[in-house]
C-alpha cells in the first residue's frame, strides 16, 4: 500500500505542475468524477508508478512505463505526484 499520510501530501504536486523532463511518483488521484478516475485507472495511472512529463503544450504528454499518453490539463492536474530528483 502506498502511504497517504499528511506530510506526504505536502510535497506532492499535480502532474500539470512538473516541467518537461521532470519525473515523479504517482501519489494519489483526485479526479472530478468516477468516470475520470476510471479512465485514469484503466490506462494504468495508479499510485506508486513513476511518470516522466514529456511536454505541456498544447496537451500534456507523459511517459508511464514504456507507454506515452496525452491528456488535457484537467486530467493532468488530477494526477498528484511526488517529484523525484
Amino acid at each position: 500500500m502506498v502511504q497517504y499520510d499528511k506530510d506526504d501530501k505536502k510535497q506532492v504536486v499535480p502532474l500539470s505542475e512538473l516541467k518537461p523532463g521532470e519525473k515523479g511518483q504517482i501519489a494519489y488521484l483526485q479526479a472530478k468524477g468516477k468516470n475520470q478516475m476510471q479512465k485514469l485507472l484503466s490506462i494504468g495511472v495508479i499510485p506508486g508508478m513513476s511518470v516522466l512529463l514529456v511536454q505541456r503544450f498544447p496537451s500534456y504528454v507523459f511517459k508511464l512505463g514504456h507507454t506515452q499518453f496525452a491528456v488535457d490539463k484537467e486530467l493532468a492536474s488530477s494526477i498528484h505526484v511526488k517529484p523525484v530528483k
Binding site: 496537451s59 504528454v61 499518453f69 496525452a70 491528456v71 484537467e74 486530467l75
Partner: peptide
C-alpha cells in the same frame, strides 16, 4: 454552447 451534457475530457495513448 447550446448542447447540454458533460464537458469532454481528453486522454489517449500515443
Amino acid at each position: 454552447k447550446i448542447m447540454p451534457g458533460e464537458l469532454p475530457s481528453f486522454y489517449m495513448e500515443i
